[in-house]
């Protein structure tokens, strides 16, 4: 009887402590003008990357205009499979894999914020956890404005890229400008949980950088309200195997601040041929 009494007492204690359930939080309020960058580490031979690409697309769809993204294939799990048409193991993507110290895929960097102070990790594996990082970044106040313009000459296949960066608050230290070129609507093979999908649509594939991989120094100790501009020229290779199609090309510009852990302050994206 004593034992029964003790068990009853324990049940009573725990039932008295019943927790109030927490409802699913509503979507965050996106700070006005804020545009964040997601760098998705993906690969043709990476099975879970199939689902991760879908998750990224849903972020872009539900936060139109507030997120820009590109897929970094690089050199991990990116070897073309037998049925591949394209080889996405491009040098600028490999540079980013090394800069961000990517060790596995799928993974993503969210404005290159440091996600673990202990390890200095900037990329997050495990796509089911990505939404929270997106929410956090979108709620931060806009601190930089980027005006990005592309003028494409169809005859010479050259894009003239004008970038103006206007800090909305003083930013100490070096500001670097990064300009990347990506391509969408590339139909090719991709590993998936059900085997190789032959007609997977690869979107936002990072093809090259118009700037240096580490970014170009834009200004040191930026003044609020000042406009800092740079111009780039990019020659698009000739179309081949439905690749390098001007209409499918995207230009992404973003700014990193050295004194703010090298994190991305703002991003912007335009089509090469508007």
């Amino acid at each position: 009887m004593k034992i029964l009494y003790k068990i009853t007492l324990l049940v009573f204690i725990f039932s008295a402590c019943e927790e109030q359930m927490i409802p699913v939080p509503p979507p965050p309020e996106i700070a006005e003008g804020r545009v964040m960058l997601i760098e998705e580490m993906t690969g043709v031979g990476c099975v879970p990357c199939f689902g991760a690409a879908e998750i990224l697309e849903s972020f872009l769809e539900t936060n139109k205009g507030s997120i820009v993204a590109y897929g970094v294939h690089g050199d991990i799990l990116s070897d073309p499979v037998d049925q591949s048409t394209y080889d996405f193991r491009l040098p600028d993507a490999i540079d980013i894999i090394q800069i961000l110290q990517v060790t596995g895929k799928p993974a993503a960097a969210f404005n290159r914020t440091i996600l673990n102070e202990n390890t200095g990790r900037r990329v997050q594996a495990n796509p089911p956890t990505w939404q929270a990082f997106v929410d956090t970044e979108l709620q931060k106040q806009q601190v930089v404005e980027i005006r990005l313009l592309s003028t494409f000459n169809e005859e010479t296949r050259q894009a003239e890229i004008d970038v103006s960066v206007i800090p909305l608050e003083p930013i100490s230290g070096e500001l670097a400008l990064h300009v990347k070129i990506s391509e969408s609507h590339l139909i090719d093979s991709q590993s998936s949980p059900n085997g190789i999908v032959l007609d997977f649509e690869h979107n936002h594939v990072l093809k090259t950088s118009a700037s240096a991989s580490q970014g170009d120094l834009l200004v040191t100790d930026a003044v609020a309200g000042e406009s800092y501009a740079k111009k780039y020229f990019y020659s698009l290779p000739d179309e081949l195997n439905e690749e390098w199609i001007a209409e499918n090309m995207e230009i992404i510009a973003f700014v990193t601040a050295k004194d703010r852990n090298g994190e991305v302050q703002q991003a912007a994206q335009v089509h090469m041929m508007e």
């Binding site: 927790e19 927490i22 699913v24 929270a132």
Partner: peptide, 23 residues
Amino acid sequence: NVDAIGSAIRNYLDVQRFKLASN
């Protein structure tokens, strides 16, 4: 942590959503 999980299931259809607990 709880909110981070909540933000993930926010994108689910109602049939798959659930209430969250800390404990």
